[in-house]
Amino acid sequence: MRSEFQYRRPASIDEAVAMKADLGTTAMYWAGGTDMVLHWMRSIHSPELCIDITRIEGLRGIEIDRDSIRIGAMTSLDELDRSADRHCLLNTLSDITKLMCTPQTRTIATVGGNLCNASPAADLSPAFVAMNADAVLAGPKGRRRVRMEEFFLGVNKTSLSGGELLEEIRIPLNPDLKVVASYRRIDRTVVDIALVNASSCISVDSDGVINGCGIALGAVAPVILRVSDAETLLLGLSVRELGRDREELQKVEELSAIAAKPISDVRASAEYRRQMVKVMVRRTLQDCAIQLKA
């Protein structure tokens, strides 16, 4: 039997956090609700109070300055899609949204909701991890920043605690470096979730030398995996080497496959997933090389 609940629409982050603090676990933050409605209908969640945070101005919008891109947690996937021409990383994120759910659900679903649902197969999560993003959390004790790869603790588990909500995502930018990113996944068709996914983000200096590298894997462990040892191998290489069959690239693929801890299920076997990790990582790096040449 699905629960009956009251509905509130706080006007500010502080007001939302105070409401949640008052009522504790029986109150739930509600974003676009595209996952929450299903969880409520299936009684996975049985809230007594729904705190609709979608209209809080401080949680909305995308801003770019010298040092970072800020994406408010209540930015809809549709709004993120429309930000493509504002920055090359937003262009990558925009392409990702087009793979997610359906056009008429992307108008409701939010970036923050997708992250807080913490699906290991989520499409945006590996990209944010590869981009070195931080999650900014707001709670009764103030704000704190968590590295994106530390935000995810398990299937549907995040590091949000004590009545915190996700306020925004911060992607760091270095004005002296050129940055590009790519995301790839294996799926059957649209409205599908990834069997395996991966994202890479590469920064190069004015000489085309790789100065920063992020590689993240999804759907091959309970959390998004960051392959730090593989990233290190690429630092100092020229971007021209990225498209070629270099020893470092094969090693990056191997380290990624070793890092992956996939399971076998109805959708794919662990062996297949592990093999595909290599392919996805290679393709994301090739995509980055192509973008950097352009």
Binding site: T34, C50, T102, Q104, T105, I108, V191
Partner: peptide, 24 residues
């Protein structure tokens, strides 16, 4: 939210109304 039968326009944008709370 997969079939689109319940699509309505909300401020001009298509939305799956089966996933929206009425208050939204």
């Amino acid at each position: 939210g997969e079939c689109g039968s319940c699509t309505v326009l909300v401020d001009g944008r298509p939305c799956t109304s089966c996933l929206m709370l009425v208050n939204q």
